[in-house]
Design a protein around this nucleic acid. Structure first.
Lengths: 197, 197
DNA sequence: TGAGTTATGATACACGGTGTATCATAACTT
DNA sequence: AAGTTATGATACACCGTGTATCATAACTCA
């Protein structure tokens, strides 16, 4: 599906137009007309592919985030600082697009989606320790929100510390304190999942 | 100044109109025309008092935040959990307005202002410990951002825990870990400030 | 009380962005 | 080659913003 070269071309032109315009002006100040003009694509054509301005941005962001997920295989035994460094490294590589996400005016909804997915992942992989003072949901939300906030501050400030250093800050300020309330869920030992097809 | 009853009346009508409309619909979906209609005030009159929609919201928020600041005298010796409970208590009282601030689409800029002031306050009252692994600015930003994020999550979730409980979460997840990197600045001992009038 | 000042309401306006509709044409598929 | 489908161009209705104007009402101060 969507193998029609005209469709792929239009979408690619629009994606690249947005990416290139974002290096010049703010996301909020861009109109859809601006994007279609740069993309050399008809104005009406835009709405044949994306419902609104956010949809195109989300399209770009999805790519970056999938790349980030690939960097974080679930069962790793990396230290929090190492894991954090990987994340901040990735953020630095795609800092243009993440800056828009984290500092933009109209990107709250998109960020909320991403946040929810990330919190879900944490909950899927961790559980509250028996004597934890903090519910799982609260700790997971805090973990994700703090990482986002740290990244946000870092990008906004022009990345004044190395990704490795940021990974350490994340580890000592966020991950290690949270680890005293959460522990990894025991992995399913056997290869065969119980049932449920 | 601004003692003219007509001015006070217009502003008060607008403030109350926004406050009452926010109980019914989202901030983003409100137009200035909606506000002036509810306020029984001419459309053009709005711009004689507020430059745009955010300015009126900021006006409302300023009141709430001043009330919060009054609750947090600088030199208190409360525990982090107690201090947190006071903050969450206040948030609960004015949860309507803070929900708009923390979850709204067009309130990023306002929230940034507030965040910056709060970080400045933390920096004014704390300093990095000699052996701290984390710079003062990073720790202060993390402290503020995490508190905002916790509050945001709490309000969005319908305040599922008591303010006291939230204060504890804040203490163990944020404040206490940060305190291992920051310490209160030594207070100026004498009553006479040095010079500089 | 009365004269001067000023905020107001009503209205009109220019501007800019969004999203839909239409239609001839070009690009694709089979 | 015939049929399908995406495209560009264009026009349009809609809505919100912020400014301008002006007669009128509300206020201040003497």
């Amino acid at each position: 599906m969507s193998t029609d070269p005209r469709i792929r071309r239009s979408r690619e032109q629009l994606r690249q137009a947005l990416a290139s315009l974002l290096q010049e002006v703010s996301y909020e100040s861009l109109s859809i007309r601006d994007i279609t003009a740069r993309a050399q694509v008809g104005y009406a054509t835009y709405f044949r592919h994306y419902s609104d301005k956010d949809a195109l941005l989300m399209d770009l962001l999805t790519d970056s985030i999938e790349r980030l997920q690939a960097l974080l295989p679930p069962g790793v035994d990396a230290t929090p600082a190492e894991e954090g460094a990987v994340i901040f490294e990735h953020m630095a590589q795609s800092h243009h697009i993440y800056s828009i996400l984290l500092h933009g005016e109209g990107t709250q909804r998109i960020l909320d989606e991403i946040r929810a997915v990330a919190v879900g992942e944490v909950i899927r992989h961790f559980q509250a320790r028996p004597d934890s003072q903090v519910p799982l949901e609260v700790a997971a939300t805090h973990l994700v929100d703090s990482l986002i906030a740290l990244t946000r501050w870092w990008l906004l400030s022009g990345m004044p510390y190395s990704p490795q250093r940021m990974g350490q800050f994340y580890a000592v300020l966020v991950a290690e304190p949270v680890r005293s309330f959460l522990e990894p869920r025991p992995v399913a030992l056997a290869a065969q999942p119980p049932a449920g097809r």
